[in-house]
Simulated scan of single mutants.
Amino acid sequence: MKYKVFIDGKEGTTGLRIYDRLANRSDIELMLIPEELRKDPKERAKYINSSDITFLCLPDQAAIEAVSLVTNDNVRIIDASTAHRTDPNWAYGFPELGQDFLEKIKKSNRVAVPGCYASGFMSIVYPLVKLGIAGVDYPFSANAISGYSGAGKKAIAIYEDENRDKKYDAPRLYAMSQSHKHLKEMQAIPGLSQKPLFNPYVCPFLEGMLVTVPLYLDGLEGEYSPKAIHDLLENYYSNQDFVRVMPFDEKGTEDGFLSANHLEGKDYLEIYVSGNEERISITACLDNLGKGASGAALECMNIMLGLDSKTSLNM
């Protein structure tokens, strides 16, 4: 059996990565809309409603419009935009967070793919709250760096221009007003009482991401050492292919360094726990286009179709 798949927004970085991963699959028939009609609502509606799975790789408003075009109840939508991530009628596409997340993805016709920064943050904070290690009122914060591939076509062109302004040669802090678009889901999914403090940086490398959540141990709901928290996270994600808790080292890694592009091209996420008896850092490392976007979307598709979740992904 071949599943008909339409990618609405194939020209963007997320859509192109999904297309590349599906192009050689014998069980997938990719539906390609003519270039001159890709923004025509009537034509898009025809493709969406004749598909088994439609990926939305679009800005929020365009994604909302695309959903409004659905008239076929059997069409299953996977939305990579921000538009539906906190909508209770949509499954949140991070199955490793718990069996309830996995089951909802399996059964749903509407799945929202997590944001890239949110994926790193959620992989750390959700189990901390779920296991009772940290309360929902803990004042979480996160520092994060990302490659420029997630910044959109215009930004990518600037970064890859040999004559670019030298300011693009250094990490650049942004969303300084504490209003980043991922904050809504970062608060809602783990049920936090307030939005975390969040400082993201876009950096002059193509792909990769680090998201670090620092913790004061005396602010947690019990007495924990860094090793104890590591072991609890390791157990939480035991037997998970897409989230891997790395061996404990108080320095994080053997040499005390962790590169943000360490998992470039991969579709899984790694968690590192480090620190001392007073303060701890937990860091998620991922490819912002892998587990942070396209890889997560394809993982969800595989689950929805009852396939091996790793199919066509780089593990």
Rank of each mutant, 00 (worst) to 15 (best):
Asp52Pro: 13
Asp52Ala: 15
Ile53Tyr: 12
Ile53Ser: 12
Ile53Pro: 08
Ile53Asn: 14
Ile53Gly: 08
Ile53Asp: 06
Ile53Trp: 07
Thr54Met: 06
Thr54Cys: 08
Thr54Ser: 14
Thr54Lys: 14
Thr54Val: 14
Thr54Tyr: 03
Phe55Cys: 15
Phe55Val: 14
Phe55Gly: 13
Phe55Glu: 14
Leu56Lys: 03
Leu56Asn: 09
Leu56Val: 11
Leu56Pro: 15
Leu56His: 09
Leu56Glu: 13
Leu56Phe: 11
Cys57Leu: 03
Cys57Ile: 01
Cys57Met: 01
Leu58Val: 02
Leu58His: 00
Leu58Trp: 04
Leu58Tyr: 01
Pro59Gln: 10
Pro59Ser: 10
Pro59Gly: 12
Pro59Ile: 07
Pro59Leu: 09
Pro59Asp: 11
Pro59Ala: 12
Pro59Phe: 08
Asp60Thr: 12
Asp60Val: 04
Asp60Phe: 02
Asp60Gln: 05
Gln61His: 06
Gln61Tyr: 03
Gln61Gly: 01
Gln61Ala: 12
Ala62Val: 07
Ala62Cys: 02
Ala62Pro: 00
Ala63Glu: 08
Ala63Tyr: 04
Glu65Cys: 07
Glu65Thr: 10
Glu65Asp: 15
Ala66Asp: 11
Ala66Cys: 06
Val67Asp: 01
Val67Cys: 03
Ser68Thr: 12
Ser68Asn: 14
Ser68Lys: 14
Ser68Cys: 06
Leu69Cys: 10
Leu69Glu: 09
Leu69Gln: 10
Leu69Ser: 08
Val70Met: 08
Val70Glu: 02
Val70Phe: 04
Val70Cys: 02
Val70Ile: 12
Val70Gly: 04
Thr71Pro: 00
Thr71Lys: 10
Thr71Asn: 02
Asn72Phe: 11
Asn72Glu: 07
Asn72His: 08
Asn72Ser: 09
Asp73Val: 10
Asp73Thr: 11
Asp73Gln: 14
Asn74Val: 06
Asn74Met: 11
Asn74Lys: 15
Val75Cys: 04
Arg76Tyr: 01
Ile77Asn: 11
Ile77Asp: 09
Ile78Gly: 00
Ile78Lys: 05
Ile78Cys: 00
Ile78Asp: 00
Asp79Thr: 07
Asp79Lys: 03
Asp79Asn: 07
Asp79Tyr: 01
Ala80Arg: 03
Ala80Pro: 04
Ala80Val: 13
Ala80Glu: 10
Ala80Leu: 14
Ser81His: 00
Ser81Phe: 02
Ser81Ile: 00
Ser81Leu: 06
Ser81Cys: 01
Thr82Ile: 08
Thr82Tyr: 13
Thr82Lys: 09
Ala83Ile: 05
His84Cys: 02
His84Gln: 10
Thr86Ile: 15
Thr86Ser: 13
Asp87Trp: 15
Pro88Gln: 15
Pro88Tyr: 12
Pro88Ala: 13
Pro88His: 15
Asn89Gly: 15
Asn89Glu: 14
Asn89Arg: 07
Asn89Thr: 09
Trp90Gly: 01
Ala91Cys: 12
Ala91Leu: 06
Ala91Asp: 10
Tyr92Met: 04
Tyr92Cys: 00
Tyr92Phe: 15
Tyr92Val: 04
Gly93Lys: 06
Gly93Ile: 08
Gly93Val: 12
Gly93Arg: 05
